[in-house]
Design a protein around this nucleic acid. Sequence first.
DNA 1: TTACGTGCAAAAATTTTGCAACCAA
DNA 2: TTGGTTGCAAAATTTTTGCACGTAA
Lengths: 144, 144
Amino acid sequence: MHTVEEIVGRMSSQGLRVTDQRKTLAKLFADSPGYLSPKDVYEYMCKKYSGLSFDTVYRNLRVMEELGVLEQVVFEEGVKFKLHCREHEHHHHLICLQCGLTYPITYCPMEQTVIPDEFRVVKHKFEVFGYCKTCVQEDAAAQG
Amino acid sequence: MHTVEEIVGRMSSQGLRVTDQRKTLAKLFADSPGYLSPKDVYEYMCKKYSGLSFDTVYRNLRVMEELGVLEQVVFEEGVKFKLHCREHEHHHHLICLQCGLTYPITYCPMEQTVIPDEFRVVKHKFEVFGYCKTCVQEDAAAQG
DNA sequence: TTACGTGCAAAAATTTTGCAACCAA
DNA sequence: TTGGTTGCAAAATTTTTGCACGTAA
């Protein structure tokens, strides 16, 4: 698991300055189990920084992604970010459509996939979407 | 394979009017082996319709996707469209990053994937990206 | 004829860039 | 002090919406 200190330390060691805003960003991602959109991040940050501008959020998300602190995934609804997985083994994700929570999936389908000889594979994407335990329960409760 | 007639007929049978522009759109997708961005489509259509507006292209792409004529995929560079696969069997895709060409992959990784009991799966995505035979050869030729 | 489709204009939403003031190191 | 960081303003992109006119059925 990533702690705020680890994230901030990583940014610092890579030459970035540790500003209050970046500490808060680190805390946000350290505390979030899943993906956050730039808008989610902006809205959260605004609570603490009244004069916050969207472009700074974007710049920091971009920088943190380039540093390998965050990873970016493109969903139908747009781009989202979460802490980069520390697991060294290659893996994929189970993603909750409601809260954005992710679980790792260790199984990689490429082992079983037959690729035509002439095709040069560069990357692959395997994502499973649905609703996590908590969200299923909440939904059931809401339905009565 | 889809022919222009089949696509147009499908649109017509679903209550859409067959305009000249939509026929051209149908032909474009019938002739394209891979994914096209809204911009690709707009540029192609502009050759024939000088006063064409981007919003009509968007509207038609949207409508055709809702009708199930087109399918939409989100790439890092943005949204793209291609004809919806007619294969009845569930399948995935091998996608060329250069030309957008797609091959079907019959293998579905969900069979082998272990999902936590509490997680309710809604959908999944398995896509393999790389370069097709033609694009690899062209690249090699260009490199000398 | 009539409802759907189109172009035009403008708005909305998202992301990027230049610049001057600010601040961590 | 100094170069990276931020807010502000504005631009660039991408996508959506309202409206009047045009057209397929």
